[in-house]
Structures are given as structure tokens and as C-alpha cells.
């Protein structure tokens, strides 16, 4: 402790006592009295500084015990802060504007469904045009990707996304949007680090994890068939 010499046993004792106090307030969900909180904070700060200095003076091999004590002190500082934080968050949540869950859900359902209907129409047209089922499905995906990209470029897809939410994110048009939007935005950083790299900001993880999972599936199938 500052200017008072070190008394590790004393620090440990106070640590335990303080923890009891903190746990008590935590359970009650009450804030500490301002003066008490200030006093605890000050105490912790003093002890932390003292322990830090002691740690600096010790040889490397003798530090273990003191490092443990230091991290316990740091944990307690966090615990003390947490009481106030949690109480505040509990109060703030009550003030938050109501989420428009129902409206969002309906819009997501309708818009997502409609995009799939458009896909179904395309699919039927491609089949009529002579493509077999798989080809028609691929052609549908590619066409939807094209329109997703185009509407992003025209600045319309984000307007749709604003109210459709997941309804315009989850269809493959949303995948196209997730590629084009960052690429467009960072175009001014050039075609390599701007457009080229940013195309894969969100598509990158999608393709990465999709590929990895498909490989696992292939392997599992190979060894279990």
C-alpha cells in the first residue's frame, strides 16, 4: 500500500471481506452507497498499486503468488463496477422503445416468400426453355444473383432491406447484396484492396465455412457408406 509498506496477509483479508460485501450488494441488486463505493475503489486502487510495485521488485520466479493476488484484485475491481453496470442496464432496458418483432416477422416472411416465388417462376421458365431440373435451378440462382447485385448497384436493395430484414438477407439475392455493398463502398480504395478484397467481406466466411462443412460431410459419407 502506498507508502505504508506491504502486508500481503492484510491485503488478502480485506479482499475476502470486500468480496462478501460486494456479493451482498450483487444479490440485492442494489447500488452501493456513493461514499462506500468510493472508499472501496480507493482501497482497491492503493492495494493494486502496492502489489504491482512488489511484483516489479521480486525475481521472476517468486512472482507467482503475487501475480495471483493481483489478478484477484483486478477481478474484484471488475465485480465492483459490474454491480452498477447491471443495475443501470436493467433500468435502461425498460426504457428502450418496443421492438417491432411482429411487424419485422411478417415483413420478413412476405418479402422472403415473394423472392422465392420469383425464383419459382424463373425456374419454371428455364425448365420450359429446355433445361433439366438441376440446370434450371442453377440458372435461377445465377439470375437472382444478377438482380441482387444490380439492385444493390442501383441503391435499391438497402431500401428493401431496411424493412424486410431477414426477408431480403437470406435469399441468395441477399448474398449478392452482401458481396456488392462492401465492394461498392470501398471502390475508392482501389480495385485490389477495395473492390477485390471487399467482395468477400461476408461472402468469404460464407464460402469458407460452407466449403469446410461440405468437405466434412463428404469425408463422413466416404467412411460410413
Amino acid at each position: 500500500m502506498t507508502g505504508k509498506g506491504f502486508d500481503l496477509e492484510g491485503i488478502r483479508e480485506r479482499l475476502v471481506k470486500r468480496q462478501e460485501l460486494i456479493d451482498h450488494y450483487k444479490e440485492q441488486g442494489k447500488n452501493l452507497d456513493k461514499n462506500l463505493e468510493q472508499q472501496l475503489k480507493q482501497e482497491l486502487q492503493q492495494e493494486h498499486q502496492g502489489v504491482l510495485l512488489l511484483e516489479a521488485q521480486k525475481e521472476k520466479d517468486d512472482r507467482q503468488e503475487i501475480v495471483k493476488l493481483r489478478s484477484e484484485l483486478e477481478q474484484q475491481q471488475q465485480d465492483l463496477l459490474k454491480i452498477k453496470q447491471l443495475n443501470y442496464q436493467r433500468m435502461a432496458v425498460k426504457m428502450a422503445p418496443p421492438m417491432t418483432v411482429l411487424r419485422n416477422a411478417i415483413l420478413a416472411f412476405v418479402v422472403g416468400g415473394l423472392i422465392c416465388v420469383i425464383g419459382q417462376v424463373m425456374f419454371a421458365l428455364f425448365q420450359q426453355g429446355g433445361l433439366v431440373e438441376k440446370e434450371a435451378s442453377t440458372a435461377t440462382s445465377a439470375t437472382l444473383v444478377f438482380f441482387g447485385a444490380l439492385f444493390t448497384g442501383l441503391g435499391l436493395y438497402d431500401e428493401l432491406g431496411k424493412f424486410a430484414g431477414a426477408g431480403s438477407i437470406i435469399p441468395i439475392t441477399g448474398f449478392a447484396n452482401s458481396m456488392v455493398a462492401p465492394a461498392l463502398e470501398f471502390k475508392r480504395e482501389g480495385f485490389v484492396y477495395g473492390v477485390g478484397a471487399r467482395l468477400f467481406t461476408i461472402a468469404g466466411p460464407v464460402i469458407t465455412y460452407g466449403t469446410v462443412v461440405s468437405i466434412f460431410i463428404g469425408l463422413i459419407y466416404y467412411f460410413t457408406k
Partner: peptide, 17 residues
Amino acid sequence: ERQFRFPTEFGVQRPMT
């Protein structure tokens, strides 16, 4: 927006907060 959140053309919903 693009530094702190998402690119402007990205179709995301902005929460009421």
C-alpha cells in the same frame, strides 16, 4: 456508417435505438 457499422448499400435493418 461504414467505419463503425455496415456499408451503406448493405440491406440491414436499423434498430429503433
